[in-house]
Design a protein around this nucleic acid. Structure first.
Length: 303
DNA sequence: CGTCAGGCTTCCC
DNA sequence: GGGAAGCCTGAC
């Protein structure tokens, strides 16, 4: 893991208060909820009518509204900042430094300006493993639907918020014990057997998985790909989104399109694209991937 | 060893 | 009937 130094002077501009059962964070920089939730890293956040987002993190339902550079978390206090928010939203990382580090040409500069508020969330390894296995040959609305289905079927009921019931992401125990048919009923399709198998393996190998944070990304890649249902792309996503391996560059269809349009010729394959990008953007190329993915999707580049 | 075509659940166009 | 945030298998 490599990260630029945290700029404590900048962090100190942030002001955290609690009022009327709401957690309020003022003067947050390099932060935009839409950029964060639409850049392809998470599946459990949905937009409310008032522009706020509601999602499930661990066993909590979180609702957050952005007003300029201020964030308002509903039903939360300062204690929740230290136990959940700070880590999940990566609040102690200085994204200005990251942007400087990867900003090597005009193309990535444009992508960074476009998705200026992107942050890489710190998500749970197990949830990310299964979520990205489900993403294989699937569309985003369907991925979200399947994850919702398995959470409702095998997760714990948390609460009702604004008229909707919320459930935690199911444990590996639950999924490994479940009859295959019940997973299939969640519309996981041909991924159902892989999910059940991965759950069983996770139970016996979770210490190995939790240790991948502290190994090289090549080691993590090699290990994760021994799971049925985890190939190059999914493994890279797991490493980037839950294991702080920022020197990865997951290549999906959108990233392939934007790279083949703006950087390399059309017959460059995914592995070559990944190597090219890792070489170009360096140890923080995972962040570059996020800006480029969001840029490509929102602008429809290469489509 | 490496590369590549075809099939795969389900849903939406 | 084609294709989607890909992966697996078998054929060369």
């Amino acid at each position: 893991m490599f990260l630029p130094n945290t700029n404590s002077e900048r962090i100190s501009k942030m002001k955290i208060t609690e009022n009327n059962n709401q957690l309020i964070i003022e003067n947050v920089e390099d932060f935009n909820l839409t950029h964060i939730f639409e850049c392809g890293q998470c599946f459990r956040w949905n937009k409310e009518n008032d522009g706020s987002y509601t999602g499930v993190v661990q066993n909590k339902v979180i609702n957050v509204l952005q007003n300029g550079t201020d964030l308002i978390f509903d039903n939360m206090g300062i204690n929740d900042y230290n136990t959940v928010i700070k880590n999940y939203f990566d609040m102690d990382t200085n994204y200005s430094e990251i942007k400087k580090n990867i900003n090597v040409d005009d193309i990535i500069d444009n992508a960074i300006r476009f998705g200026y508020g992107i942050r890489i969330l710190n998500q749970d390894e197990w949830e990310i493993m299964i979520s990205f296995m489900i993403s294989a040959n699937n569309r985003i609305p369907m991925i979200k639907k399947v994850i919702e289905n398995i959470s409702k079927a095998f997760g714990e009921y948390i609460c009702n918020y604004r008229g909707r019931d919320y459930y935690s992401f199911p444990t590996a125990e639950k999924l490994s014990e479940s009859p295959l048919e019940l997973i299939q009923e969640c519309k996981a399709g041909f991924r159902s057997e892989r999910i059940k198998e991965a759950a069983a393996r996770f139970l016996s190998e979770k210490e190995i998985i939790y240790a991948l944070k502290n190994k090289t990304y090549e080691e993590g890649l090699e290990y994760l790909k021994t799971y049925k249902g985890i190939g190059d792309k999914v493994a890279n996503c797991i490493l980037l989104f839950s294991m702080k391996q920022f020197d990865t560059f997951p290549v999906d269809v959108w990233v392939r399109r934007v790279m083949q349009t703006l950087y390399v010729d059309k017959n460059t394959n995914d592995k070559e694209i990944r190597k090219f990008a890792e070489n170009k953007f360096g140890k923080l190329s995972g962040y570059a991937q996020q800006y480029l993915f969001y840029y490509a999707r929102e602008q429809g580049i290469g489509k």
